[in-house]
Amino acid sequence: MKGQMSYILKPISLVMTIALLLFLYSSISESIAKERQASKTLNLISTSTNILLILANSEDCLAYRSPATDGLYANIVDVTKLKQMASDFKNIEPPCARNYNFGWRATVVEINQDPQTPSKIWSFGAKNFSTGPAFKNDINTSMPIAIRYSDKDVIPGNIYIYLVNGELENIAGALDWSCDLFRNGRLNATSFGIHTSFPLSYYKSTNELCSGTKQKSCRVMSCPLAIKDIKAPGDYVWTISYLQGSLVVK
């Protein structure tokens, strides 16, 4: 009888142990996946702060440089640069604050003492973003600034940023990153894997990479692309080379 019990218990123990180990493995895998996702969220928060600081404090972006002192003033935005940026970068992030992992659009709003006075607004950056399953997460945040018209006219304002983590932003970011390195002669060829939940198509006339079927989200690219449309969602490995100012994607 004792021996029979042992014969039953041992296989049961074995099966249970294997089940426990499988549970442990799946938990660890899940934790790793969650950590990666969390890391992206953290990165999103950190990046939003950094981009806002760069926009308001970098001379290449919006910061005002005084010709008299030849000094930059923290968080003082030059209205001339602001107007120029809103006109030059209606649909794309300005290179001074480009981020290759995320897409963003910034809006600068003037603050008036009298709430009835209409506020002036300037906007620049990516026009649209990943949607549906291609969208991962986003953040909407702001930072105070001063908008300088002249020495005697500096008024309060806020700079808002909408930052998006999505497939289109990741794919376009990787291609723009390659483009910038190719242009600077720091890259000969590269390859990377992408995942897309929608078909991808490229429009040469507007230099836009679009994701989606009916309602498409499009991004203006840094370099023209020589690429075949991707008709089905899935994982792909791209090999990138640079030919006569264009990215050749295979």
């Binding site: 600081l53 003033y73 923290a74 968080n75 600034i145 001063a146 304002g157």
Partner: peptide, 16 residues
Amino acid sequence: EGVSAGANALFSMTES
């Protein structure tokens, strides 16, 4: 960073 930016911006703003 927001509070610092606000203080920096405030002191540069002009009174009309």
